[in-house]
Amino acid sequence: MKVRAAKHKRVVDTLTGPFERRFLPWMASRLPQWVLPDHLTALGMFAAVLIAVSYALSNYHPAFLWAAFFGCILNWFGDSLDGNLARFRHIERPRYGFFVDHSTDALAETLVFIGMGMSPFMRFDIAAVALAGYLLLSLYAALATVSMGEFKISYAYLGPTEMRMVAMLGTAWVYFNGMPIIQLPFVGLTVLDIIGILVSLLFLGAFLISSAKMAGRLAHIDRTAHHEHKPHE
């Protein structure tokens, strides 16, 4: 099997994509020479720890939510710029970069969702289901990269940046409005609970639909290849 992770096509079709495609290279061109892609990856990872710890500490005071809010901005900066900086300076390490970037992303999101679940504003089981949905999408992205040479990080025009924006807006709303319980049949949910459920459904739906489409594409490719190589009688 030919592995395509080292050289793949990035599929990014998000609401913020046009802005990021202009802003991130511009920012990368202005970073000091001593700043390296690995520094930015480490910054993104530090920001994820900050977000998780801040959500957990919001049990003691809601002001810690602003540290989580700031952590989302810091995480976006580090996570979005590391690859852009490498491409701008032509210092890409395709295999290393792909592995480190996406393994740290998975760890970072795991920490963030656990931190949300430990806060008083989101049920832990909802955070766990949202995390499972995110990890399923990460698995799909890796499999699609190996199978088709396509690395997709956007679904329904939403990507990591949009997810951070949703988290930031929800966090700010909770800070200013407290934690009102929305009573539904059989259960009461907070605003972040409802956001977590919607995000979970988005992740799981995107995984199922994308996997079904990819399976159909691969089946067609394999059938075509089989017929092309089948000896003529």
Rank of each mutant, 00 (worst) to 15 (best):
P25G: 04
P25R: 00
P25A: 08
P25E: 07
P25L: 06
P25Q: 06
P25Y: 07
P25H: 03
W26D: 02
W26F: 12
W26E: 02
W26M: 08
W26I: 00
M27A: 14
M27P: 00
A28T: 02
A28G: 00
S29D: 11
S29T: 01
R30W: 02
R30S: 06
R30E: 03
L31M: 14
L31D: 12
L31C: 07
L31R: 04
P32Y: 06
P32V: 07
P32F: 09
P32A: 06
P32C: 08
P32E: 05
Q33F: 04
Q33I: 02
Q33R: 15
W34C: 05
W34I: 09
W34M: 11
W34G: 06
W34V: 10
W34H: 12
V35P: 13
V35R: 01
V35M: 14
V35E: 05
V35T: 06
V35G: 12
L36Q: 15
L36M: 15
L36Y: 11
L36H: 13
P37R: 01
P37G: 08
P37Q: 05
D38T: 08
D38S: 11
D38H: 12
D38W: 04
D38R: 06
D38M: 10
D38Y: 03
H39W: 13
H39N: 14
H39Y: 07
L40H: 03
L40Y: 09
L40Q: 10
L40T: 09
T41C: 10
A42Q: 15
A42T: 12
A42K: 13
A42M: 15
A42G: 03
L43D: 11
L43M: 15
L43G: 10
L43P: 03
G44R: 10
G44L: 12
G44H: 11
G44N: 14
G44V: 12
M45C: 11
M45S: 15
M45V: 13
M45Q: 14
M45H: 12
M45R: 05
A47H: 11
A47S: 13
A47Q: 11
A47I: 11
A48I: 00
A48C: 07
A48D: 07
A48T: 07
V49R: 02
V49D: 01
V49T: 09
L50G: 04
L50I: 08
I51R: 04
I51H: 00
I51M: 13
I51D: 08
I51Y: 02
I51Q: 09
A52I: 10
A52M: 06
A52K: 05
A52G: 14
A52R: 07
A52T: 04
V53F: 06
V53A: 10
S54F: 05
S54D: 07
S54H: 06
S54W: 07
S54P: 00
Y55V: 02
Y55T: 02
Y55H: 01
Y55P: 05
A56R: 11
A56C: 07
A56Y: 13
L57A: 14
S58K: 03
S58G: 03
N59S: 15
N59L: 13
N59F: 11
N59Q: 14
